[in-house]
């Protein structure tokens, strides 16, 4: 009997391959690969300076808080499924967690509604000690299980101001929690709207209604009314009080940059909403985990190619054989 031809051996192998691939697909074979995903705790500064509407080129005159919310919405739409987002707010001297991160695709509507509902009236105090707020936001993020990264939207306007020599001390470990401080606002100092209970503007904060200098510079109260204790240089206090601009608010970019550097966070200015979303969906902040991929499409496609190849081989082999026969 003739030895099996080369074509017939090849065809047999291809057939066997197709059988194995198809069986694997039928049994539900899956491939486990590493994949990027993100977990963010997004904290919004809801203090009154966030109600300023900065005239920024190319952007509608929305409040700073509204622009921060838009950026967060954009981030929510861009996060791949399996990522998670939680929300917190900052006011007074601390951040408050509203809900821990939940998966974004399964809870898209809920997170969207939540983001839309955030507004300045949630602020429980008219103070804005941003450094302390950041410290507590880092502590909250560090407490989250599984771990998450922090995104902190603020304009960097400390109220009352911070003394240069006595900044709030961070007791945590710098760089342990990764994240991004997003600076919201314009360079032009603008008056801060004063709103009533229902959110209508009733004026702006005046020069003498806000603290123009930090509490240290004002000095400690002494026994005698009107006298202050010595210890802190307050020589130019009168001048500073008179020329204070704390009732106007702009984006304190330099200050936020310093804070970020000291805390091991990154800083990014909020321009178009998409920019922040883009930075936050890069590998820098990604977590990796094994994800199951269904590869049946590949298995099936290769199996089909094999079967088609078999019939092509035969027709090619057939032509060759006929040519040989004709030549003989």
């Amino acid at each position: 009997m003739a030895r099996p031809s080369r074509q017939s051996t090849a065809a047999l192998w291809l057939l066997l391959g197709a059988l194995l691939l198809t069986s694997a697909a039928g049994l539900g074979a899956r491939l486990v690969l590493e994949r990027d995903y993100y977990r963010y705790l997004v904290v919004f500064d809801v203090t009154q300076s966030m109600n300023v509407r900065d005239p920024l080129p190319g952007l509608a005159r929305r409040t700073r808080l509204d622009r921060a919310k838009l950026a967060a919405q954009e981030l929510l739409t861009r996060l791949p499924c399996g990522s998670a987002m939680g929300v917190g707010i900052f006011t007074q001297h601390r951040s408050l967690l509203l809900f821990t991160p939940v998966e974004v695709c399964g809870h898209y509507d809920e997170i969207r509604t939540m983001l839309a509902d955030i507004d300045w009236s949630m602020a429980w105090r008219a103070r804005s000690e941003i450094a302390k707020g950041l410290h507590s936001a880092i502590a909250i993020t560090g407490n989250l299980q599984p771990p998450a990264r922090l995104v902190f939207f603020t304009d960097g306007h400390e109220a009352p101001p911070v003394h240069v020599d006595f900044p709030p001390r961070f007791t945590g470990e710098s760089g342990k929690v990764q994240g991004l401080i997003v600076g919201v606002g314009g360079q032009l100092p603008l008056p801060i709207p004063k709103l009533d209970e229902t959110g209508d503007q009733v004026g702006v904060w005046g020069r003498d209604e806000v603290m123009q200098v930090d509490v240290y510079s004002l000095g400690r109260a002494g026994d005698v009314p009107g006298e202050t204790m010595v210890g802190v240089e307050t020589g130019d206090l009168a001048r500073r009080l008179a020329s204070g601009t704390e009732h106007l608010s702009s984006l304190h970019e330099e200050y936020l940059g310093q804070l970020a550097a000291g805390l091991g966070l990154d800083y990014q200015r909020l321009e178009a909403p998409g920019v922040v979303a883009e930075v936050l969906t890069t590998g820098r902040y990604a977590f990796r985990r094994a994800a199951v991929h269904d590869v049946h499409g590949w298995l099936g496609a290769v199996a089909l190619t094999f079967i088609v190849l078999i019939y092509l081989i035969y027709s090619a082999g057939g032509r060759k054989a006929r040519r040989r026969w004709d030549a003989a």
Binding site: S95, L98, F99, V102, G106, E110, M114, D117, W124, A139
Partner: peptide
Amino acid sequence: STKPIQVLPLTQKPEIIQAAISAAGIG
């Protein structure tokens, strides 16, 4: 506390309900 803060819209999804409950325990 001083001000009411809305945390969660009405939903039936257990995961986010539990997320809101456990958030109240941090800080």
